[in-house]
C-alpha cells in the first residue's frame, strides 16, 4: 500500500512538473522568465507586462494546449482501463464502441460539406458522430435491456467498419485534395486546436466521469472476476455496465471532439498502469489517469517542438514514443492483473 501511494503521489508531482516544464518549450524562443511572468500576470501574482504577442503565445497557445494534453491523456487512459475491465477484453480501448470512427465520419462530413473550417463546427460534428455511432452500437448490441460484453464488442467492431467505409467513400467521392489534407491531419489526432473554450467542456466532462468511475472502483474489481462473481458480490451487473459504458463513451466523445482520435494512450497505458500498481481499480484508475496525462503532455510537446518549424499531429507520435517505453516496462515487470 505505501508503495502504491508513492506511485500516485510521485505521478501527481511528475504531472505538475511536466506542465510547468513543457509550457516553456515550443517553436517560439521564449525565456523561462517570460513564460512564467505571463502566467504570473494572468493569475494576478505579478503585473510585469509582456508584449502582447508573447503573452498570447504562452496564455492562448501553449498553456491551454498543455492542459488539454493532460486532460485528454488522463481521460483516454481511464476510459481505456474501464473499457478493458467492463468488456473483459485486454484489447479494448476507449474507441471500442465505434466512437473514433463515428467521430471521424462526423468531422469528415463537416469538412466536405464546407460547414466552415470553424473549430466549433468540427468538434460538434465529431461529437455528434461519436454519439451517433455509440447509440447505433448500443442499439445493435442490446437485447431486452441487457448488454453482454461479446455482443457489445462485436457491434462496436461492425459499426466502426461501417463508419470507416462511409468515411473512405466520402473522401474518395469528394476527391478534394485540400479537404482531405485537413481530414488526414484531423484523423491522426492532434492537440493543436485546444483552446480555453475546448477546455471548458473537456475539463468538466473529465472530472464528472472520473468521479463516476472512481465511485464504481469496487464494482470494477468485482467485474474482473467475471459477471457471475460480481453478481454474487451484490453488484447490479447490468446497471453498472450500462452506467460505466455510457459514462466513458460520453467522455471519449468529448475528448475525440477536442483532439481527434489519438491512439495508443487508451489501449496501452492502462496496462502500464497495471504493471505499476496492480489490478485494484481504486489505485489503478488514478495511476492510469496521471500516467496518461504525463505521457500525452510530453508526446504533444515533442510533436510541436521537435520538428520546429513543422508541426506533427500528436497521434502520429504516441505509439512511436510510447511503444519503446512500454517495452522497457514489459521487460522489467512481470505481467500482473
Amino acid at each position: 500500500m505505501p508503495r502504491d501511494a508513492t506511485v500516485t503521489v510521485g505521478l501527481a508531482g511528475a504531472l505538475v512538473l511536466s506542465v510547468a516544464v513543457t509550457v516553456t518549450i515550443g517553436p517560439a524562443d521564449l525565456s523561462l522568465g517570460t513564460v512564467w511572468t505571463v502566467i504570473g500576470d494572468h493569475l494576478g501574482l505579478t503585473s510585469a507586462g509582456v508584449p502582447l504577442l508573447r503573452d498570447h503565445i504562452v496564455w492562448q497557445l501553449r498553456l491551454p494546449r498543455v492542459l488539454g494534453a493532460a486532460a485528454v491523456g488522463a481521460g483516454l487512459a481511464v476510459a481505456g482501463a474501464v473499457m478493458q475491465t467492463v468488456t473483459r477484453n485486454p484489447l479494448a480501448d476507449p474507441y471500442l464502441l465505434g466512437l473514433s470512427s463515428g467521430a471521424s465520419l462526423g468531422a469528415v462530413l463537416v469538412i466536405v460539406a464546407g460547414l466552415g473550417a470553424g473549430v466549433g463546427a468540427l468538434a460538434g460534428g465529431a461529437f455528434l458522430g461519436a454519439l451517433a455511432a455509440f447509440a447505433l452500437v448500443i442499439g445493435v448490441a442490446s437485447r431486452q435491456a441487457t448488454l453482454t460484453p461479446t455482443r457489445t464488442v462485436l457491434a462496436g467492431v461492425a459499426v466502426a467498419q461501417l463508419c470507416a467505409a462511409v468515411t473512405s467513400f466520402v473522401i474518395i467521392w469528394v476527391n478534394e485534395p485540400h479537404a482531405t489534407q485537413s481530414i488526414t491531419f484531423w484523423l491522426s489526432g492532434s492537440l493543436a486546436r485546444v483552446d480555453w473554450t475546448a477546455l471548458t467542456y473537456a475539463g468538466p466532462a473529465l472530472a464528472a466521469v472520473l468521479a463516476v468511475v472512481l465511485a464504481h472502483a469496487r464494482a470494477l474489481n468485482a467485474f474482473a472476476f467475471g459477471e457471475e462473481a460480481a453478481a454474487t458480490l451484490g453488484i447490479a451487473v447490468t446497471r453498472v455496465r450500462w452506467t460505466l459504458l455510457v459514462a466513458v463513451s460520453l467522455l471519449t466523445a468529448a475528448l475525440v471532439a477536442v483532439s481527434g482520435a489519438i491512439g495508443f494512450v487508451g489501449l496501452i497505458l492502462p496496462h502500464a498502469a497495471r504493471f505499476l500498481t496492480g489490478a485494484d481499480h481504486r489505485r489503478l484508475l488514478p495511476v492510469a489517469a496521471l500516467s496518461g496525462a504525463v505521457f500525452l503532455v510530453w508526446v504533444d510537446t515533442a510533436a510541436r517542438a521537435l520538428f520546429d518549424p513543422r508541426e506533427l499531429p500528436a497521434g502520429v507520435l504516441t505509439a512511436m514514443i510510447g511503444v519503446p517505453a512500454f517495452v522497457i516496462l514489459l521487460r522489467r515487470r512481470e505481467v500482473r492483473g
Binding site: P27, L53, H56, I57, L61, A192, P309, R310, E311
Partner: peptide, 25 residues
C-alpha cells in the same frame, strides 16, 4: 505547402498574409 504551427507564425510575425482563395476554403 507544409504544415507548421500558429506559435511559429506568431513568432515570425509576418508583414503581409497571403490568403489563398479557393472554392473549398
Amino acid at each position: 505547402w507544409t504544415e507548421t504551427g500558429w506559435e511559429t507564425v506568431v513568432e515570425r510575425d509576418p508583414d503581409v498574409i497571403v490568403l489563398v482563395d479557393a472554392s473549398w476554403d
